[in-house]
Amino acid sequence: MVATCIFCQLLDGQGPVEWLHRGDRASALLPRPQGRLAVGHTLVISNEHAVGVQDVSPDALSAAALLVQRISRALAAAIGAEGVNVLNASGPNSDQSVDHLHFHVVPRWAGDDLDTWPRGRSSHQPPDDWLDAVHAHLGT
């Protein structure tokens, strides 16, 4: 736990929160009403403090991913969500709002007028050998 992290504080029982699920390794909560993108919008967080997918333990990441699936199925059954967008930003320059691993599970319906898909493209120019470097780090 990190004392200055809002998600760690909520996991520690500090502050008002609407929990949908409290697990040993991952939990799910509703965002504050002003931050909800749709009815049922849920945040799935790792109970382990990690900034993002790059530094979280494999067990905590697995638990969070499995909870994303459970929440998605529950939203389909309970409120008829036809699909979900699962959104995550991890690390510096990713537009991450809270430096604690979390996934937004946003229910979707035909014609709901919500646009969560990026429309622009990065202007960053990688080195010519970027793909070889990725393969080298992956060991493939």
Rank of each mutant, 00 (worst) to 15 (best):
V105Y: 03
F7I: 04
Q14E: 13
C5W: 04
R119P: 08
L11W: 01
F7S: 01
H102I: 08
H137R: 15
D113G: 03
A64S: 14
A133N: 12
A76H: 07
T42D: 09
V44W: 01
H102Y: 07
D95L: 12
L29Q: 00
Q96G: 06
W117P: 00
Q96P: 04
V98A: 08
T4N: 13
G15D: 05
F103S: 01
H21T: 08
G83F: 04
A50V: 04
R119I: 11
G91W: 10
R32M: 15
W130T: 04
D55P: 07
R108C: 07
V44G: 03
G80D: 10
H21D: 13
A63G: 05
S94N: 09
D95K: 13
G52Q: 07
Q125G: 03
G111I: 02
G52E: 10
T116N: 14
V44E: 02
A110R: 13
L30G: 07
N85I: 05
A133P: 02
W19K: 10
G40H: 03
G139S: 11
V134F: 07
L37A: 15
V17K: 01
A63Q: 02
D12T: 03
R121C: 09
R25H: 15
D95P: 00
A60Q: 07
S97I: 13
L138G: 07
P118G: 10
S94I: 08
F103E: 00
A64N: 03
L20M: 11
D129L: 11
V106L: 09
V106M: 08
G111C: 06
S27M: 12
L87K: 03
G91S: 13
V53H: 06
T42W: 06
D24P: 02
A77E: 13
R36E: 15
P31W: 02
E48V: 00
Q54I: 08
L20H: 11
H102G: 05
G52D: 13
Q96T: 07
W117N: 09
F7Q: 03
T140D: 12
R108I: 10
W19L: 11
A38E: 10
A65S: 14
S46L: 05
P58V: 10
G13F: 06
G83C: 07
V56T: 07
S94W: 01
G13M: 07
P16N: 12
G35I: 00
A26F: 02
R119Y: 05
G80W: 02
I45A: 00
D24Y: 01
S122C: 15
G35D: 15
G35W: 14
